[in-house]
Design a protein around this nucleic acid. Sequence first.
DNA 1: AATTGTCCTTTGGTATGACCAAACTAGACA
DNA 2: TGTCTAGTTTGGTCATACCAAAGGACAATT
Lengths: 237, 237
Amino acid sequence: MDIGNETGRAADNVVAMLEAKIVSGELEDQTPLPAERELMEQFGASRTVIREAISQLSSRGLIETRPRFRPIVRKPDYATVLHACGNVVQHLLTDKTGIKNLYDSRVFIERALVREAAVSARKDDIVSLRQALEENRKAIPDSNEFYRTDVAFHGVLYRIPRNPIFPAMHEGYTSWLAPQWDRMLRSPERNEVNYLAHKSILDAIVERDPVAAEEALNNHLKAAWEFVRVTFDWGDE
Amino acid sequence: MDIGNETGRAADNVVAMLEAKIVSGELEDQTPLPAERELMEQFGASRTVIREAISQLSSRGLIETRPRFRPIVRKPDYATVLHACGNVVQHLLTDKTGIKNLYDSRVFIERALVREAAVSARKDDIVSLRQALEENRKAIPDSNEFYRTDVAFHGVLYRIPRNPIFPAMHEGYTSWLAPQWDRMLRSPERNEVNYLAHKSILDAIVERDPVAAEEALNNHLKAAWEFVRVTFDWGDE
DNA sequence: AATTGTCCTTTGGTATGACCAAACTAGACA
DNA sequence: TGTCTAGTTTGGTCATACCAAAGGACAATT
């Protein structure tokens, strides 16, 4: 059609241009995109290619589309990226193996996280952990609330390295594994056990004992997995 | 919630059906999809919808499209997922902060990997590491070849947990960080330093000393980062 | 005046039909 | 037998039209 480069798909050019306008801020975050019929005039392209471009931008997480609404610009952050990856990742979680792999990788990461925490957690990190643990304790009778505070407690661990990638990974783990966990039965007794596991993890961190912290977390998550395994009547690994 | 039908977008239904046919194997891996005009008859939808569906499947990594060629079915694996995520991730790597965060997370992961390796590497893992190190040594004079063997050596570490997620992460790290790395100057002297770092990592693993292994790797990657930082004349962190 | 109901406009979703250029195929030709 | 060529697929693009839901303007109602 116009400027820029040669062959390939015309939609790709539109994608590139809109992409540039989004990252440069010319198209502000959280604001609606121009209407399709306006964009086709602006880029001198047919509506077909405009819609193709919008579709691609949407799947890249740069805009959010709702039926019959103008797309909303969404400047990419780590959470956005993770969410966009989720659409793809879900294909790997259709069988037990995929879930196990994902869960194992989570255990691996969290083991390293608690070790890191035991070695170099700051005072305010400890405070955050204590608060999260306390809320976790108070939620023992309410299983839904307990689940929330459970996730929150682990989330504090992911924030300790102060690298936004880790909280994003945490969000990925929780949202991608949630479908499995939701089907699990919960009980105050079960919550109590998990709370105590959280407590022993925090205790080890406070004592600056990375080995004990790692082991406590490992036991915690292994037991949790065992619980899922039995619940779903999966065979041995 | 949704079971296939009656949702807002017709393309989503087509996507879901094709998706099912791909994962079930009815549409075999590496084979071309039916032509668009055939699909529209098969699904009773317009070509608009079919093309929309194809576009979505493509961005999810389930098919591979080339201009003027039938889309090729590609059953999703971990590498595919990572590749699909790459299109999204690249937006986070436009500034130094994004690159640093990604690199730091890599350091974090690899520290845990070498620790794990030191504790529980099997004999054949050690053999693989030795082979990789040897090839790395022989490649010292050739910087391109050295880079390849360098990546390969680290890759062995990612395979030790025998969880396909880790090699996929490795591929992500190398491909996403490669653009930065490529712009760096290389030299046999620099290669020699890196080779010795690899050697000290392997030595520590062989000696079953997780602390030394972690420290050796940490020094290795920190030095590498320092080298990039200076090369690009970035300020302090 | 505030609220509610109705009409028109906007806008994304879908359907047709057409044309092009590159890739493929098969038959003609040397 | 090997090569060239013409016709056929097939994805990429364009133009136009219609629908249904969301938004907005304005009159009617309380």
